[in-house]
Simulated assay, not measured.
Amino acid sequence: MGAAWAVLIVGLCLWGSDAVDLRGGLSEPAAGDVAAVGRPFGVELPPAHRALDPARPQRVDIPALDVRAAVTARGLDAEGAIDPPPFAQADSVGWYGGGTRPGAAGAALFVGHVDTETRPAVFYHLSALKPGERIRVARDDGTVAEFTVDDVRVHRREGFDAKAAYGPHEDGRAELRLITCGGTFDHAQGRYTANVVVSAYLTGVIR
């Protein structure tokens, strides 16, 4: 997992390198190494639910973004980064199958494209999520794990701390990370300058 964290930002930022119409229009550049996208004052977050038994994810729903997407397990590519879904499946979400299963203790990693060559993709509006909003993950044991967003950040490539971005925030807690490209598109390098990382934690289960 540590090796995947170390190169994940590189793999993600290269995903949009073939986009021609949407480059640079996805999110505002972060100020400094890490910038909060949305953290409204006074949002009361619910208590964490105990971690669940491991189960594989099948679908992710993000009501605030009108996202309802299939989830497929992904491994690592030749460079050691999480291999995203192919652009032909840009409306689906990849789950790093070599790591934590969503709902179990630890941080499960979900990755999604921000754009394709011609249109927005599944996580195009990811940076618009706010703390307190819900993410639901349907699992293959028949349960739906409900997560509450507690942090939304843009992590720039310079000074990037992979463990801080993708590692668990609290030991023993079931957490979720939704990750896509962010910042601006660097035409000289052919990639985005940052990652958008949404952090959430388990707050309920529907059986």
Score class of each variant (00 low, 15 high):
Gly132Phe: 05
Phe110Ile: 03
Ala128Tyr: 12
Ala145Cys: 09
Asp115Met: 12
Gly159His: 10
Arg156Cys: 04
Thr143Cys: 04
Asp150Met: 08
Gly167Tyr: 01
Thr100Met: 01
Thr143Ala: 13
Ala174Gly: 08
Phe87Leu: 14
His169Arg: 14
Gly98Asn: 09
Ala164Asp: 15
Ala162Phe: 06
Leu109Ile: 15
Val137His: 02
Thr148Ala: 14
Gln89Asp: 15
Val111Gly: 09
Ser92Trp: 03
Val152Cys: 08
Gln89Pro: 00
Asp83Ala: 15
Gly80Glu: 09
Ala121His: 03
Asp150Cys: 09
Phe123Asp: 04
Gly172Ser: 07
Val114Asn: 08
Asp171Leu: 06
Asp150His: 14
Gly106Thr: 00
Tyr166Val: 03
Pro86Glu: 13
Asp150Gln: 10
Gly142Tyr: 02
Thr116Asn: 01
Gly97Lys: 12
Asp140Met: 11
Gln89Thr: 10
Gly159Trp: 11
Gly99Gln: 00
Asp161Trp: 00
Gly80His: 09
Gly103Phe: 04
Ala107Gln: 01
Pro131Met: 08
Tyr96Cys: 07
Asp161Asn: 13
Glu79Asp: 14
Leu129Gly: 03
Val137Ile: 14
Thr116Phe: 00
Ala128Pro: 01
Asp171Trp: 03
Gly80Pro: 03
Ala165Gln: 11
Ala162Asn: 11
Gly159Pro: 08
Arg157Ser: 09
Pro102His: 10
Pro120His: 06
Arg173Ile: 11
Glu133Gln: 15
Arg157Tyr: 09
Ile135Trp: 01
Gly99Pro: 00
Arg156Leu: 02
Val111Ile: 13
Val111Leu: 14
Arg156Met: 05
Arg153Tyr: 09
Asp140Phe: 07
His169Glu: 13
Thr116Met: 02
Arg157Lys: 12
Trp95Val: 05
Gly132Asn: 07
Ala145Asp: 07
Val137Ser: 04
Gly159Cys: 12
Leu129Arg: 03
Asp150Arg: 13
Glu79Met: 11
Ala145Gly: 07
